[in-house]
């Protein structure tokens, strides 16, 4: 969770600054300018959120089973090479991923979702894999030794114990996702990027901020949502934030 570690003095200063900014924006008519963009913001934000939700959930739905599959002992031979490929994939800038996806799939929502999906997929797969690999052999042996089937071992012991690491992966991945969505505008998928980039082009700071501020807020909200979900879903015994 984003924590604000500010001393009392800093906090007072911040409050004062916000107050001054408020007074200034009120008097200079910036608020009115923002209100002008409100319908655009609403429309584009919905598009924006959809891009995140669809690509994000697709990535989660694919990445966790993929990471799980790779972590199975029978996959040990190929798993390391696949992870190497994924690691290299992670180093490719997301803008390049989008560009690549556009060159295959053309312009519009589909290549954008696909690009975002790929960028989100990698961290979750990697964390699922390392999280499951990191479950202590003693636990797996105990689970097997008392007579759990492989599926029961996975669902009752391995996944719950890897869940914290998996959630860390989801968090990183969605941070990348939300941060990349504005770029989707560049390949014609809309979203708040439209206001940002057009604002930059037209040298219109208010327009640019109308896109940037909701984007930033969205990033914070998504991060908090994941943190809260992790807090609730990861069993207390293996949840460092709940001890």
């Amino acid at each position: 969770m984003p924590t604000l570690n500010l001393s009392g003095a800093m906090r007072l200063l911040m409050l004062a600054a916000v107050f001054v900014a408020g007074v200034w924006s009120q008097s200079s008519g910036v608020i009115d300018d923002f209100i002008f963009y409100l319908p655009d913001i609403q429309f584009l934000a919905v598009q924006h959120i959809w891009l995140t939700v669809i690509s994000g959930s697709l990535a989660i739905v694919v990445a966790i089973p993929l990471g799980t599959l790779l972590s199975r002992p029978s996959m040990a031979k190929v798993a390391e090479s696949v992870m190497q490929v994924l690691n290299v994939g992670t180093t490719i800038p997301t803008l390049a991923v989008l560009a690549l996806s556009m060159s295959f799939l053309g312009i519009g929502t589909v290549p954008a979702v696909f690009g975002l999906f790929v960028a989100t997929l990698l961290p979750i797969t990697r964390n699922t894999y390392t999280g499951l690999k990191g479950v202590s052999p003693a636990l797996k042996e105990a689970a097997a030794g008392i007579g759990m089937s492989p599926t029961q071992r996975l669902l009752r012991v391995e996944l719950p114990n890897a869940l914290y690491v998996i959630f860390a992966g989801i968090r990183t991945a969605l941070a990348i996702n939300v941060g990349t969505v504005p770029l989707a505008f560049l390949i014609g998928a809309g979203g708040l990027g439209e206001l940002i980039f057009t604002g930059i082009d037209l040298y219109d700071p208010v327009m640019m901020l109308s896109g940037a501020i909701p984007t930033a807020m969205l990033a914070i909200v998504v991060d908090m949502l994941i943190a809260i979900t992790a807090f609730l879903v990861v069993p207390r015994g293996v949840n460092p934030s709940r001890t």
Binding site: S136, L139, E141, A142, G145, I146, G147, P160, N161, P235
Partner: peptide, 17 residues
Amino acid sequence: RRSIGYVIQQIGLFPNM
């Protein structure tokens, strides 16, 4: 295995339970 009690050296309690 279910008919045999098994105590491993590393104790191996499930931390999530």
